[in-house]
Design a protein around this nucleic acid. Structure first.
Length: 568
DNA sequence: GCCGTTTTCGGCCCGACTGTTTTCAGTCG
């Protein structure tokens, strides 16, 4: 049983208890225990006594011990006897919670979504006290949405959607300022909806203006404080909340609605301990005055805390992290993976250089595709050496930036590399990557990756798992082994910053605190250089320290690192 | 069910919106 199984058990117990009508604090105790387990960095098998974790006491630990010993939970079995399985599914229906489900069960003996649907259609539901015609319609709509709507949008879908929405908001007369909050600001790979904080002098006028946006399909909620809508653009659909505030309340509201829920609970507990109260409007001091700060840094400072970046607010472990070690976007001094028109990029070599200078970088590497990748117009040896020569000349012409000559070289299915060593030794920065034969066994795939790491000229493995978020899971990698070999051979692993990839992921990186990384955009267009913020966000989410990241080195230090070669 | 430098009992984070009510419960974030 993995840690995930234990977490799932506690969460499932919580769900069943809620549906059984148990005390809400008891229910949340099980959820807190699940969160405590998730946040623990101790491997589950080494955790002899569960009660050492805050939030896990005698009761929960007995459940976990039984599960560890037998693989089962008598508590969960009892709950399953008492609660119809269909009720768990029914909880997924929007605007339908445990209380209503219990009432529908007691009054109409409804146990499944199908039965609920029939009861709504025959108007049996609206006959119950506390239920009306509207509720019946809401439930039917909720059932339909559950069947047709996707549960989440991916981060790259969120990037695309917010791009459109931002543009429209910028032109809105009653919108003075706005920002994205919520899970997308925390840079989650998947988001349930999008959250906007909107500064306005006239909330009702702004609401009216927003509700008239052409891409809004449905208005769910419309009030003084917020508007909730469904937006649809091309084939993308998502819920979007707009929260209204004035200039002074902006930062507090941004902080509150960035969450996460667990982060906010912790903040409120801190406030309470000081006899203060914090909510989306500000901090109410002990004497009753409302304090509103104009930066999030100041909010954390109020509690004698270091600033916690949004990416680290998914759980409360960030409250313990030393600020000086946290990576920042401005720490990145160069981008080491990008393409030009020589292979499948959209811009010329010189245009990519100019764009990197605009970004303020100290160095960059040009890494087009290698000869085997025919669909991407991969470079023959002749073209590669010619490009290498040209880059060395251009390097003389640009004093602002060091331009390194590289390649994104394919690791072929048989484990050999796409160029011989006597070609590779001419280059400054060789990246190896897998672009074909994704279906090989883990053993075959690992042999390819290990071969690449062991080559004396390969400095980096690009997008190490080959995954595309929400689309494909990538090839079979033994991550622990890859990281070990990469460490031994002084080969850097990439965080590919393209929001389709984010590979390695934050989840993986966090498990290996000593891993050496490079964060690169893999830009095929000058605008893709902006993806760096998603790569850095992923690193921050993975609690990466600045020292772990190759391209935080200064211009001179990076030059020295290259000169030194792979053997130390 | 968990927790404790004011507590081993009595708390446990806070507010908006909706629908069904006629003052509030349920749900969501």
């Amino acid at each position: 049983m993995t840690k995930k199984d234990y977490i799932k058990l506690l969460e499932t117990i919580g769900l069943y208890m809620e549906l059984k009508g148990e005390n809400t604090f008891k229910v949340s105790a099980y959820r807190k225990a699940a969160a405590a387990l998730e946040q623990s960095q101790v491997p589950i098998d080494e955790l002899a006594d569960f009660t050492v974790l805050p939030g896990i006491g005698k009761g929960v630990s007995e459940v976990l011990n039984e599960y560890r010993a037998t693989g089962e939970s008598s508590l969960l079995e009892e709950l399953k006897e008492a609660v119809p399985a269909g009720h768990i599914q029914m909880l997924k229906i929007r605007n339908l919670g445990a209380k209503k489900i219990v009432k529908l069960y007691k009054e109409l003996n409804i146990t499944t979504i199908d039965e609920l649907k029939a009861a709504c259609e025959s108007h049996a539901v609206s006959g119950l006290t506390g239920f009306g015609k509207k509720t019946e319609e809401t439930i039917l709509q909720g059932i339909q949405d559950l069947e047709t709507k996707k549960e989440h949008i991916t981060i790259h879908e969120a990037v695309k959607l917010t791009g459109f929405i931002n543009q429209t908001l910028e032109e809105a007369a009653h919108v003075k300022r706005f920002a994205v909050a919520g899970s997308h600001r925390r840079m989650k790979e998947l988001s349930k909806d999008l959250d906007y904080i909107v500064v306005t002098d006239d909330a009702l006028a702004a609401a009216k203006e927003i509700e008239a946006f052409t891409f809004i399909q449905h208005i769910e909620v419309s009030g003084q404080e917020k508007v909730s809508v469904t937006v649809k653009m091309d084939d993308l659909e998502s819920g979007v909340d707009f929260r209204f505030t004035d200039d002074k309340g902006f930062v507090q509201m941004l902080n509150h609605f960035t969450g996460s829920k667990e982060h906010n609970v912790k903040m409120r507990q801190l406030a309470k301990a000081r006899d203060e109260k914090v909510n989306e409007y500000g901090i109410t001091l002990a004497d009753g005055t409302l304090k509103q700060y104009d930066s999030e840094e100041a909010i954390y400072k109020h509690y004698q805390l270091n600033y916690i970046p949004p990416e680290m607010r998914d759980d409360v472990t960030a409250f313990e992290v030393e600020q000086s070690e946290i990576l920042k976007l401005s720490d990145i001094r160069g981008d080491l993976h990008m393409h030009t028109t020589a292979s499948d990029g959209a811009f010329e070599l010189e245009e990519m250089i100019e764009a990197c200078i605009q970004k303020g970088y100290d160095y960059m590497a040009i890494t087009d595709h290698s000869r085997s990748l025919k669909v991407a117009n991969g470079l023959s040896v002749e073209r590669l050496l010619a490009q290498n020569q040209k880059i060395k000349e251009l390097n003389q012409a640009y004093s602002e930036i060091d331009i390194y000559s590289g390649i994104e070289m394919d690791i072929l299915p048989d484990g050999t590399l796409d160029y011989a060593d006597d070609v590779l030794k001419e280059l400054d920065y060789v990246i190896a990557a897998i672009h074909q034969s994704f279906n090989q066994s883990e053993e075959e795939t690992m042999q390819r990756l290990i071969n690449a790491c062991q080559n004396p000229y390969v400095r980096q493995i690009a997008h190490p798992t080959g995954r595309l978020i929400g689309r494909r899971s990538g090839y079979a990698v033994n991550m622990a082994e890859l990281i070990e070999v990469a460490g031994q051979t002084n080969t850097v692993l990439e965080i590919n910053a393209n929001p389709m990839r984010l590979d390695l992921s934050a989840e993986v990186i966090r498990q290996y605190p000593d891993i050496k990384l490079a964060i690169n955009t893999d830009a095929h267009h000058t605008s893709h250089l902006e993806f760096m913020k998603y790569g850095v966000g992923t690193a921050i989410k993975g609690h990466v320290k600045r020292e772990q990241v190759l391209n935080t080195l200064t211009r001179e230090a990076f030059h020295d690192w290259l000169q030194k070669g792979k053997t130390t």
